[in-house]
Nucleic acid binder design. Sequence first.
DNA 1: TTGAAAGCGGTACCAT
DNA 2: ATGGTACCGCTTTCAA
Lengths: 340, 340
Amino acid sequence: MSQLPQQPAEVSVPTSADVARLAGVSRATVSYVLNNNATVRISDPTRRRVREAALQLGYVPHAAARSLRAGHSRMVLLPSGHIPGGPPHQYFFEELQSGLRRLDYTVVQYGSLGLTADEAATAWAELRPVAVVVPPGIELTPHGTGILTRSGAKAVITLGPDPVPGAHGLVMDQRRVGVSAVEHLLVRGRRHIGVVMPEEPCRASFSESRLAGARRAAEAAGARVCPLPLRYEEESAHDLAARWPDLGLDAVFAYNDEYAMLMMRALQDAGVAVPADTAVIGADDALIGRLLRPRLSSVRMELAMPQPLAETIDRMVQHPGGSPVHHDLLRTSVVHRESS
Amino acid sequence: MSQLPQQPAEVSVPTSADVARLAGVSRATVSYVLNNNATVRISDPTRRRVREAALQLGYVPHAAARSLRAGHSRMVLLPSGHIPGGPPHQYFFEELQSGLRRLDYTVVQYGSLGLTADEAATAWAELRPVAVVVPPGIELTPHGTGILTRSGAKAVITLGPDPVPGAHGLVMDQRRVGVSAVEHLLVRGRRHIGVVMPEEPCRASFSESRLAGARRAAEAAGARVCPLPLRYEEESAHDLAARWPDLGLDAVFAYNDEYAMLMMRALQDAGVAVPADTAVIGADDALIGRLLRPRLSSVRMELAMPQPLAETIDRMVQHPGGSPVHHDLLRTSVVHRESS
DNA sequence: TTGAAAGCGGTACCAT
DNA sequence: ATGGTACCGCTTTCAA
């Protein structure tokens, strides 16, 4: 289909030695020129010759060789395995990446599904990152933290619900979501609260945290919480709705707005009035929640600005050895609409 | 060594030399033992001593040093910058990663937002990946392809709508989505078709392709297509719905189900009957589309199995230099519900 | 069965 | 203003 001639099977990748040879200088000079080394003065004609040679050969420096020699890299590792949590989280991580790149770090995501926590930590450590930022939903053990710091990571940061000993914990405590939802329902006079728990395993870490928060808020008020497993399918929701009269619940907090909408529709189809019989609240404040009727109440999440986090990481890298920082990045508020 | 007062207790990362010293053997022996080298026989007591020393020191091999010495890595680079396309695409890439890891590759995602196409290609090339898989929405130029192959990548694969000269193109042609949607609307007797175009820039590459497909299908039948820019906000949708009578349209194909639901709700609020006055169809066949009334028609996408793609990549790596492969991974079908 | 040594690609110190 | 060279951590002959 393509008319381009095929490259020969064995292409030899140009090295700085090739550039040096073509420019008629030493490898040292090549390094000085291409890195704009300020401590050494190189004549302009030489600079030009080196630059031209590099361009002509399509020379690209070898990051591994460079960081091996330097004894350190500027790689920030971001383990990634299906980050749930919707747009706010996604936006947070995109901005974090931009912020770090602006500070001249190389951000690399490492897919770690199907590895145990310590296998994963070892795999990350092999890359010798200068910092590791573990998002919520990815497990990091104290032992894993040890592996990473002992292999040179200057900053190990977890964003999960709980701090990990030895790591800096910039916490996104999903329990707050459950607390806010249940407190809202309590204020509206509800006492028997179902909590929709996705059966999809990738949701587990978030949903467990949100349930724990719901529990805490309910217990403090002497109210009842009932976990309700649900698959993200209409059939599963209808089965659950059919059992509704037996459950004796007057409110549902669903894992997020999508599960809430699924549940609400199933309840309505089963003849349960929302919010009269059962109040419904979701989480994430997704736009679609406003498109159903009644409009969906929701817990809105606000994450701290990612740019300051990038700068914090930079500071940790430059001045390592500080005692672990702990800080909560998540704020929640309830958006009350018509379903509760 | 640590005489400089500026640097606090520099933690020295254990190397294979440290392991060798502790075990009382040479570095070569350490390498043999830890890599289970079959060509060399090492006595069991020695093996055990080496293993224990490595464990005790928390030794983790240095991936950069290893691949520098080996002359090649097993890293597959997956540039990532906000992959749109919803669950089917997300699932596809997760499975692809698992498949590659099963074949013993290290999959690394490299966030490339905010870089030009060739800057990004250079940044990728510095990591000397053995293969690069460029998802739709990330730009790759023929020049970028050259940079990558010349720096040792054995397989460069694009998944965008159009093949890139020099790269293998395993195409996901989003135009099919537009074609399927419009053909469906034509069959239902509609001739004046609006196409909702998200104004969010991260959607641009997909939405442009889908519009192009819609155009092609409409032109073939002498029907009219009208692009409708829309922000993902209720206000934007209501503004658009208010202008509806002037537009003279009898159908809308929205970029995806979320935009379709937003549009449909706004139309209903403005007194436009769906599907009587205006038919609506989305894309992605998301579950939430079934929760609104009327239930949303949608274009369902099916992506080829990722496991075969992983094996194809493996084959390309082992036998490089084959002529570019081109193949379409995307199949579409229309799920007809009540909105069209 | 184990060890000594070369060398992968770059960088930086020390000569010249 | 440049060049020679040692060395980063690891693998892999070749020798002992």
